[in-house]
């Protein structure tokens, strides 16, 4: 009888242990970190939770620039712009066009189709990065800023091209925004990194600025017309 009770207790303890998958002592944590929780949320795709946590952190400490940089990345991810996915695809997808000679086709296959929501998230992301003083930008933060601005530019180009392909005309506001983005791309501190995406961005910025035309609108039209 005693032996049977003993086996029963042990079986119960074993089942209790095996059935619990999480950390049973997590509530005793003395190192709770909202920033680490936000990073973990982002890794798991819970961007809304991460955004809330990062906004709380920044409200408490506006000089927490790593949290600011994470928030920019989080805004972009909410818009479907995940740097990791983009860079891995750019490096491994052999079907992509050459980023230097054909940046438009390259970015069309690499990036999501532009939409108002994606643009609004990218504006949030790039504006958030712009709040970090340049003296406090680490090389990784500069890289992120460079990538976000570059992706914003490439998506704008896609959007303009789609308008032209649909028989529409480009507005002055669109042209002004495009050149403002080009100025921001050129003005962003260079992280010194080079990849397929930076090659496409450089090709687009130099392609437009070197295009013939008396006005910015003509330059853009001359650059995009052969691609329609």
């Amino acid at each position: 009888m005693k032996k049977r009770n003993f086996i029963f207790v042990i079986s119960l303890l074993t089942v209790a242990t095996l059935s619990c998958g999480g950390n049973v002592l997590a509530t005793l944590s003395t190192k709770k970190s909202l920033q680490e929780q936000a990073i973990n949320d982002m890794q798991n795709g819970n961007y809304a939770d991460a955004q809330t946590k990062l906004l709380t952190l920044i409200a408490n400490d506006p000089s927490n620039y790593s949290a600011v940089s994470l928030l920019a990345s989080c805004y972009a991810a909410i818009g479907g712009i995940k740097l990791y996915d983009i860079l891995i695809k750019a490096a491994t997808d052999k079907s992509l066009s050459n980023p230097s000679s054909n940046p438009i086709n390259f970015s069309a296959a690499l990036l999501p189709t532009p939409s108002a929501f994606i643009f609004s998230q990218l504006v949030l992301a790039t504006n958030t990065m712009a709040t970090i003083p340049s003296a406090n930008l680490t090389s990784d933060m500069s890289f992120l800023q460079q990538m976000l601005l570059g992706i914003y530019l490439l998506l704008q180009m896609q959007d303009l091209l789609n308008t032209l392909r649909a028989g529409g005309t480009l507005t002055n506001a669109q042209i002004a925004l495009l050149f403002s983005t080009i100025a921001n791309v050129n003005g962003a501190s260079n992280s010194g990194s080079s990849n397929q995406l930076t090659q496409a961005i450089t090709s687009v910025t130099s392609g437009i600025t070197n295009s013939a035309g008396g006005t910015q609108a003509q330059q853009v039209a001359n650059f995009l017309t052969p691609l329609i």
């Binding site: 990073i39 982002m42 890794q43 994470l70 990345s73 989080c74 990791y84 990784d140 933060m141 992120l144």
Partner: peptide, 11 residues
Amino acid sequence: GQQFGTVGVPQ
């Protein structure tokens, strides 16, 4: 590998 690293860049 962390897709967002510590500042939003893969690490």
